[in-house]
Amino acid sequence: MQEQEKHEDSQRDELGLKIRSNDNPYLSADIQQKQLQPRRLSSYFIVLIESGSITYNLDAQDFTLTDGHLLFAMPNQLFIPPAKTDDLKYFKLLFDENTLALLPQQFPFLVNPLNAPVIVLDNAAKDRVVQVFGILNQILYLDKQETDTEIILAYLNLLLSELNSAYFKNKEPLNSLNANLSKFIEFKLVVETSLTEQPSINAIAEKLALSTTSLYRIVKEYAGTSPKDYFINRLMAEAQRKLRYSNISIKELAYELGFNDPDYFSRLFKKSTGKSASDFSPRQDLSGK
């Protein structure tokens, strides 16, 4: 059984795409237990609940999912999955940046610009999404003959198109969002990729070919806060994760996050979170050891 699972994973890893469902759960007890460990995601993650109920923890926040609910997360988010319940019917999908780059279009929902990681599908959309998940599950796991990569990518593209539409449903029309939304997505990506470098807001605005006033207006529209506060909040969230799930010292953490003065970091942490950094203690090693 373990050899079969390793063979399946090696085939999918070539494309950077993995899927799990009731038809093909994790086979070995060791792998099942490992999957329950807190970890930082290295891929995009999507889980659809077809029936049943379950609660996931993403970035220290609980999300309870039931029939027709879908949770998605992006790389680098802290993810704590729950043990599967007996009555749960589900699909899970993971894919990496390289796989995403092979698709013919972009999907703004994946960076969660509206800060809503749960999508509630209506009945019609749920039926379509379940069918596409089922097809991907079939061609990746159940079919004996190998399927062309182009076909797999076509169904992945179709799935993400459905989810992108559902994410923005009943929101402002995409046509009027595109310019500002695109810049907000770029802003979020700059924050993620340069977090420990701590660039100035002026430098970020210049990189995005925006004035600081325009950047403030766009970030305020989608995040409800200023670019500076958004960056600090993201930095402090990263600090809290590291304090909770590793044995790093406060001084080491300050330097790792780009602060030259550990005392200043401690004061900023206290001001931003209302708690002292020393109040946080490691709860579980992300390595699962």
Rank of each mutant, 00 (worst) to 15 (best):
E14G: 06
G16H: 00
K18Y: 05
S21P: 02
A29K: 09
K34C: 07
K34F: 10
L36S: 11
Q37R: 11
L41A: 03
S43M: 13
F45P: 02
I49W: 04
Y56N: 13
N57Q: 10
L58I: 12
A60I: 15
F72Q: 01
L94T: 09
L94G: 09
F95H: 01
L100S: 05
A101N: 09
P104L: 01
Q106K: 12
F107G: 03
N112E: 12
A116V: 15
P117F: 10
P117R: 03
V118E: 04
N123S: 14
V132K: 00
F133Q: 00
F133A: 02
G134N: 02
G134T: 05
I135Y: 09
E150I: 10
Y155H: 13
S161Q: 06
N164M: 04
S176N: 08
A179R: 06
N180G: 15
K183Y: 05
K188A: 14
V190N: 06
E192V: 12
N202V: 13
A203N: 05
A205P: 05
K207L: 11
R217W: 03
Y222K: 05
T225I: 13
T225C: 08
A237I: 09
A237R: 02
A237G: 15
A239L: 01
A239I: 04
R244Y: 09
Y245D: 14
N247T: 14
N247G: 09
E252M: 03
A254H: 01
A254R: 01
A254K: 02
F259H: 05
F259T: 04
P262H: 10
P262S: 07
Y264V: 15
F265W: 08
L268F: 00
R283K: 06
